[in-house]
Amino acid sequence: MKEKWKIILALSAVAVLVALLAYRIFFYAPPVAVIQAEEGKVALEVRGPGVVASRIQVTVSTRVTGTLKVLHADQGDSVKAGQLLALLDDTDTAAKAGSAAAAAAASQRNIAEADAALAKARADRELAQSNFRRDEEVFRAGYISQAAMDAAAAALKSAQSGEANAAATLGARQAESQASAQEAVYARALHSFTRIIAPMDGLIIVRDAEAGDVVVPGSPIFRMVDTSKLWVATRIDESVVGHVEVGQPATIRLRGGKELPGEVARINRQSDAATRELEVDVAFREIPERFAIDQEAQVVIHAGEEKGVVIPASALFQQGHAFGVLVVTDGRAAFRPVRTGPSDGERVAAREGLKAGEAVILRPAGIKSGSRVRAVTGGER
């Protein structure tokens, strides 16, 4: 009798388990938190990484070959336009400038001598011309001979030739003086190039040379930037860069955590073939007190807002190659592909695939499309 009851109890237990399993499989619907999709607006924020840069970056070099004698600036220094940054050894250029100046002064003296000679030759020609006219008058009256007249004509011709030679000499001396003056200007310019001065107000970010180094034209001595024109060179994906316009406000977050206001200053129209990104330069509205060129930063460009069906970002997931959400329809979860629009980090605008009023599952992880569910509203987003 006891054995019979044991069998009955065992069969009863199995029946209960089968019933529970059947209920679980065919009738049980676990509760899931849902929210109704609704019409709304989502701020259009375009995000991208970047680095701090300056719109104006200058390499300070020399225009003549020479040895660096002394440096008056170092990296990290703020300098003003025209400030002396370095000096080259000017022994040779100073000597050449002095020699050229002396040659220019000597050529001026030569001009003065040639001018005096021309004045004398002009006076001799005027005297010979006066004598010729007087002798010509008395020759007509028969008071002097033909030989005397011929001598007066020869004297006039000689005086005229002397004046022409003196004028030519003066012209040559003037040309020599002009060339000497140009040589003096050139020598002074070369000597001035031994003084390396700041081309603008700015910050020296790199010093590439030391005292005693031999530098040549084009070799960098300093690198400096204009700190009044700082921006962040930001990389923006080409799929969203169409929303960006010059003048749009932005928020710049430096790696140290400080946030500063910015503004889109320039949009590069050349896309990187590898990353499919474009450079967008976002200028600082307030220059940070502490910064470093090439410092990493994150930029959020506030590109307006978009109307549409709004859902929580947590409801989105990827199934296969499609992005979408799970909606509750007739007590079952159903995958719904959606085409998304802008997102503010918490909410997303669904441009296609959803209608306002549909129940969207907030946390779809672990829920399969087609499974029974029981929608529960008011869950955390």
Rank of each mutant, 00 (worst) to 15 (best):
P249F: 09
L230V: 11
T234F: 10
E263V: 15
I293T: 03
R223K: 12
V232R: 02
P261G: 10
V232D: 06
Q248R: 07
P288Y: 06
S271R: 06
I267F: 06
K258W: 08
R285C: 09
V282N: 01
N268T: 09
V264F: 02
Q270P: 00
F284P: 05
R266A: 15
S239C: 05
V282R: 01
S271H: 02
V240C: 04
I293C: 02
P261M: 10
H243A: 11
E259Q: 08
S219D: 14
F222G: 03
S219N: 12
V225W: 02
S228K: 14
L254I: 04
F284R: 03
S239N: 12
E238Q: 14
P249I: 04
D237C: 08
F291K: 11
G256W: 00
G262T: 08
V246M: 04
V280Q: 03
G242R: 09
A233G: 10
R223G: 04
I267H: 05
D237P: 09
V232M: 05
A250K: 07
L230E: 04
R290E: 12
V241R: 10
E277V: 11
E238S: 13
I236Q: 11
V240I: 14
T227N: 05
T227E: 13
R290K: 15
P288F: 07
W231E: 06
E259Y: 00
V282H: 01
E263K: 14
D226I: 02
S271E: 07
M224C: 05
R290T: 15
R285Q: 15
H243L: 02
L230C: 08
Q270S: 13
T234E: 08
V280E: 03
L230M: 09
T275P: 06
R266L: 13
R269W: 15
L254E: 08
K229E: 13
K258F: 08
P261I: 15
D272S: 09
E238P: 11
V280F: 01
P261F: 12
K258R: 12
R285G: 12
D272P: 09
R269E: 15
E238T: 14
D237S: 14
T234W: 07
K258N: 11
S228T: 15
S228I: 03
G257S: 05
H243M: 02
F284G: 01
S271Q: 06
A283G: 10
R285F: 04
I221V: 12
R276S: 10
A274R: 07
I236K: 11
A250C: 05
F222T: 03
I267V: 15
R266E: 15
Q270A: 14
I236Y: 13
R269M: 14
L278E: 04
G256S: 03
I252D: 03
E289Q: 13
T227S: 11
V246Y: 02
A292M: 11
E289V: 06
I287N: 00
K229T: 14
A292G: 12
D281P: 04
T234R: 07
A283I: 04
V246E: 09
S219L: 14
V280M: 06
K229N: 13
I221P: 00
M224S: 08
A274N: 10
I293M: 11
E277L: 08
V241P: 00
I287H: 01
I293G: 01
E238C: 07
K229P: 01
V244K: 05
D281Y: 07
A292D: 13
E286V: 12
I236D: 13
I287A: 00
G247N: 01
L230Q: 08
I293K: 00
R253H: 02
A233Y: 08
E277H: 09
S239W: 04
A233Q: 12
